[in-house]
Simulated scan of single mutants.
Amino acid sequence: MLSALFLTCRLAAALLPAAANSTAAAPGAVTITVAPSRVLLEERAGSHLNFDFAVQAGPDSLWLSKVEVSVYDRSGALVLRKFVDNNGFSPSVSSLSHRVFAPGQVALVFNPFHTFAPDVEVARLAYTFEFQDAKRKAVTQALDVTPERYQPRAALKIPITGRLLIWDGHDENAHHRRLDFHHPVAQQVGIRSNFMRYAHDFVVVNDKGETHGGDGKKNTDYPGFDQPVHAPAAGRVVAAYSAQSDNDNGQDYFNPGDMVGKDPLLLYGNYLVLDHGNGEFSLLGHLRQNSLVVKVGDEVRPDQVLARIGSSGSSYFPHLHYELRTGAAMNVEGLPAYFTKFRLVRGSRSRTVPSGTVDSGDIVVQERK
């Protein structure tokens, strides 16, 4: 079996275009930058990284053939080395978000090496990108990434009470994570960064994990609709909007054009932004129309009711969008959120989490006394 697999890989490699030996990229051949420049490390049963590579081809088209990373600990010792390449009939490099770069084009390549086991100390990551140009000449580019472990200063609590499903978090498959801010549509509406990089969509569910009754077409089919939204921590209201109609029963009132001419945060429909201090802001979105009970300038206390769950803005059904971020405007950066005193449910078992992160698919219970 091993020999057959080896032969298959060799055959597939033989059918690919030949390449010269790799050489360092000629000046201007390719430019690769890390986005965001400040790379944060989120700790949850290991280390999780959430950043992108902005790749810009020079005067020639480029085809990405390999990405390799070497992980080093604080002493400088090599911990492990991983790569994706074009070997095999279904090469792993094809899983990357972009592989072909036209001259002068900037495109995002989502970091393929994002999760490391608890026993892997991640102090420095050395990346190597290998390309081929139109003449099949190999071009390589290397860059280092030094991540920073991040713990928010605000003592955050999940903003909704009860049993919740993280419908979409920020793992590698989540749409929050895969916001390609170099996409033409994103550029057109003014998106220049991934502000929702660490976002969560909280959905109220029943004991069976069901999100709704009936056919799910009406907002009232969802037990979460009109449920209270609480302040995740103390803060001051610095931005708010509440006049957007809720999408309901097939009616979609979200207009992306409003984001350009009126308010970019209307992506979230009705929203609220809290300044917790220390450069940490909470954004709560898709709130029910006219449900806000606070206004800009108000100081709020932890657990205070702020609004109610709706389905406004870019929303398909009632839920709460939550993100911790570096500012109140659109083009800021996301921050990892660690919530306190919730229960993580694993089937018939559950455990109390004093402080920790949550992500896509998790079922949690947040209680308030």
Results as ranks from 00 to 15, higher is better:
residue 163 R to S: 08
residue 163 R to G: 09
residue 164 L to G: 01
residue 166 I to F: 11
residue 166 I to R: 14
residue 167 W to I: 10
residue 168 D to S: 14
residue 168 D to Y: 00
residue 168 D to T: 13
residue 170 H to Q: 09
residue 171 D to I: 12
residue 171 D to R: 02
residue 172 E to M: 15
residue 172 E to V: 15
residue 172 E to Y: 13
residue 173 N to E: 15
residue 173 N to T: 15
residue 173 N to Y: 14
residue 174 A to W: 02
residue 174 A to P: 05
residue 174 A to K: 11
residue 174 A to D: 15
residue 175 H to P: 13
residue 175 H to R: 15
residue 176 H to T: 10
residue 176 H to N: 12
residue 177 R to Q: 14
residue 178 R to W: 02
residue 179 L to I: 03
residue 179 L to F: 02
residue 179 L to V: 10
residue 179 L to G: 00
residue 180 D to G: 10
residue 180 D to E: 12
residue 181 F to W: 07
residue 181 F to L: 00
residue 181 F to H: 06
residue 182 H to P: 06
residue 182 H to K: 06
residue 182 H to A: 08
residue 183 H to W: 15
residue 184 P to T: 12
residue 184 P to C: 01
residue 186 A to Y: 13
residue 187 Q to R: 12
residue 187 Q to A: 14
residue 188 Q to G: 10
residue 188 Q to L: 15
residue 189 V to W: 10
residue 190 G to W: 04
residue 190 G to I: 06
residue 191 I to T: 05
residue 193 S to I: 05
residue 193 S to R: 14
residue 194 N to S: 04
residue 194 N to I: 05
residue 196 M to G: 09
residue 198 Y to S: 08
residue 198 Y to G: 09
residue 199 A to Q: 07
residue 200 H to R: 14
residue 200 H to C: 12
residue 201 D to T: 01
residue 201 D to H: 12
residue 202 F to P: 06
residue 203 V to N: 06
residue 203 V to F: 03
residue 204 V to I: 14
residue 206 N to E: 11
residue 206 N to H: 10
residue 208 K to G: 13
residue 209 G to A: 05
residue 209 G to P: 11
residue 211 T to P: 12
residue 214 G to K: 05
residue 215 D to G: 01
residue 215 D to M: 09
residue 215 D to E: 04
residue 215 D to C: 02
residue 216 G to L: 07
residue 216 G to N: 09
residue 218 K to W: 00
residue 220 T to G: 01
residue 220 T to Y: 08
residue 221 D to S: 03
residue 221 D to F: 01
residue 222 Y to F: 13
residue 222 Y to K: 00
residue 222 Y to D: 04
residue 223 P to Q: 01
residue 223 P to G: 11
residue 224 G to A: 07
residue 224 G to Y: 02
residue 226 D to V: 13
residue 227 Q to S: 10
residue 227 Q to C: 09
residue 227 Q to P: 01
residue 228 P to T: 05
residue 229 V to H: 04
residue 229 V to Q: 00
residue 229 V to G: 02
residue 232 P to C: 12
residue 233 A to P: 00
residue 233 A to F: 05
residue 234 A to Y: 06
residue 235 G to D: 05
residue 235 G to P: 02
residue 235 G to E: 04
